[in-house]
């Protein structure tokens, strides 16, 4: 198996490494970068627990090789809070509505929901459902996750409106 030198910008920090051609992006993030917030649930692209933001779009890091991400930008759950560790509006809303139980699907659920909020702060229920349908949660029945996304959107909207006025 050939080895490759790669350079990936992860959460704003350039990470370099030498990986086997078959090393998945998920394994590179978890094992080489020790960013263990990205979880592996099925390794066949269904459960969505390994989702990360890749050049601004959510992708399954279990279905990508690390070498494919060479030269690209990746955001993981560890990159969602600000530099001082302040929770993002979405993370904060997840805590307020208890949008999780075991926490295993949560990082990727946040990645998917954040991608939606990056596109619109006025998501319809159908848009929220579509965004969250990329991720399976076995604990919550999704209700409180739905509530969290609505709450975060509402807070972000009112925050923006305040800045504007």
């Amino acid at each position: 198996m050939s080895n490759h030198d790669i350079k990936i910008k992860v959460n704003g920090v350039v990470r370099t490494g030498t990986v086997s051609a078959r090393t998945t992006l998920a394994d590179f993030l978890r094992e080489d970068c020790r960013l263990t917030g990205t979880h592996i649930g099925c390794e066949h692209g269904i459960c969505g627990a390994c989702s990360v933001e890749y050049d601004g779009q959510p992708v399954r890091s279990c279905l990508m090789y690390a070498v494919q991400a060479d030269g690209h930008e990746v955001t993981t759950v560890e990159g969602l809070s600000d530099k001082d560790g302040k929770l993002s509006a979405l993370q904060d809303a997840f805590c307020d509505t208890h949008a999780l139980q075991c926490g295993f699907c949560t990082p990727a659920m946040l990645i998917s929901a954040q991608s939606l909020l990056n596109e619109t702060l006025k998501p319809t229920d159908e848009q929220i459902r579509e965004a969250l349908s990329a991720n399976i949660c076995r604990c919550t029945g999704y209700v409180q996750i739905f509530q969290a996304v609505r709450l975060a959107a509402e807070r972000l909207r009112s925050g923006k409106e305040k800045v504007a006025s």
């Binding site: 993370q91 208890h98 075991c102 295993f104």
Partner: peptide, 16 residues
């Protein structure tokens, strides 16, 4: 809850 914060920042301590 007490637990949620560590999970939303990806700081859970799972076996893997």
């Amino acid at each position: 809850t007490k637990e949620d914060k560590r999970f939303v920042i990806g700081a859970g301590n799972y076996v893997a």
